[in-house]
């Protein structure tokens, strides 16, 4: 086992990690000469980051040797964790976790399932889990942005929302403008990523594929495939969660409960 753990690749990686960490420590020492003290934070962050990613890599190495179906519980766990993380953005909205969970499970689940069936994602666990995790992580960010934006929009327009209610509007009508703007705002990063692809940045997936020997053109095309899937899954997630969350902004008697502060 130790032989496997300390293979030539791992030893080479450890050497590279030490070199990269050395660069970070050098910057830390440079800052120290300017009387900027970040030694503690930098050291803790470096050690913690290294241990976390090595542990995750080790767990993945074990899991990726398992049968294909094990990707389902792995991805399901990621979806729940992602829903809990992004729901924190909408703490004051009751039901934020449930809306996030439904959004992420349906948004990423449908995209991953469909793309796997259509051959855009290799069903092998070693491909499905990393690609799936990318989709889930991006859906989490998009969902968090959408909920945060929805909360701030509604809280900034309480008067308009209540005016609409006071005229007999349904709660979903009273906040529909803010659902739309939250949805649009949440998709800005995904749209910008697609727009600037290859011009402003060469994403990690493509870089990794090229480094591991894939033809650069195929790596480039597959990077586009991934970003398009990210857009689809994030868009569907955000669409579902903003639709669901708008109902939770109101009481059963259709009163706005998502208000900026305690009642005056």
């Amino acid at each position: 086992m130790w032989k496997q753990l300390l293979s030539a690749d791992v030893l080479r990686g450890l050497g590279q990690a030490a070199t990269a960490a050395g660069a970070a420590v050098a910057v830390m020492l440079l800052a120290r000469t300017r009387r900027i003290h970040v030694e503690r934070e930098t050291t803790v962050a470096l050690v913690r980051g290294f241990l976390q990613i090595v542990i995750v890599g080790w767990i993945l190495a074990l899991l990726l040797r398992g049968p294909s179906w094990t990707s389902i519980p792995i991805l399901a766990f990621m979806m729940v964790a992602a829903a809990a993380t992004s729901a924190r953005r909408a703490k004051r909205i009751p039901g934020a976790f449930r809306a996030s969970l439904y959004g992420i499970v349906v948004g990423t689940g449908v995209t991953i399932g469909l793309m796997t069936l259509l051959g855009a994602i290799d069903p092998a666990i070693s491909t499905l889990v990393p690609i799936g995790s990318m989709l889930i992580a991006n859906a989490m960010n998009t969902n968090g942005l959408a909920l945060d934006r929805f909360r701030s929009e509604v809280q900034a327009h309480v008067g308009h929302v209540e005016s609409a209610l006071a005229l007999g509007a349904a709660p979903e009508t009273a906040v529909s403008r803010y659902v739309q703007s939250s949805y649009q705002a949440s998709l800005i990063p995904a749209i910008d990523n697609l727009r600037s692809l290859g011009i402003v940045w060469i994403p990690g997936l493509m870089a990794g594929m090229v480094l591991s020997g894939s033809p650069p053109l195929y790596a480039a095309i597959y990077q586009f495939v991934t970003l398009a899937m990210i857009f689809a899954s994030s868009g569907l997630t955000s669409l579902i969660s903003t639709t669901l969350i708008s109902a939770h902004a109101f009481s059963p008697a259709e009163q706005l409960v998502l208000r900026p502060g305690p009642e005056a």
């Binding site: 008067g159 308009h160 209540e162 609409a164 006071a166 005229l167 007999g168 349904a170 009163q255």
Partner: peptide, 28 residues
Amino acid sequence: PRELRRKVGMVMQTAFLFPGTVAENIRF
């Protein structure tokens, strides 16, 4: 609640008009 609010209308301290035209607001 919706029927009650139609029957008990309310004008607030600030107009809080919806974006659009005057007629669209009147028809809301």
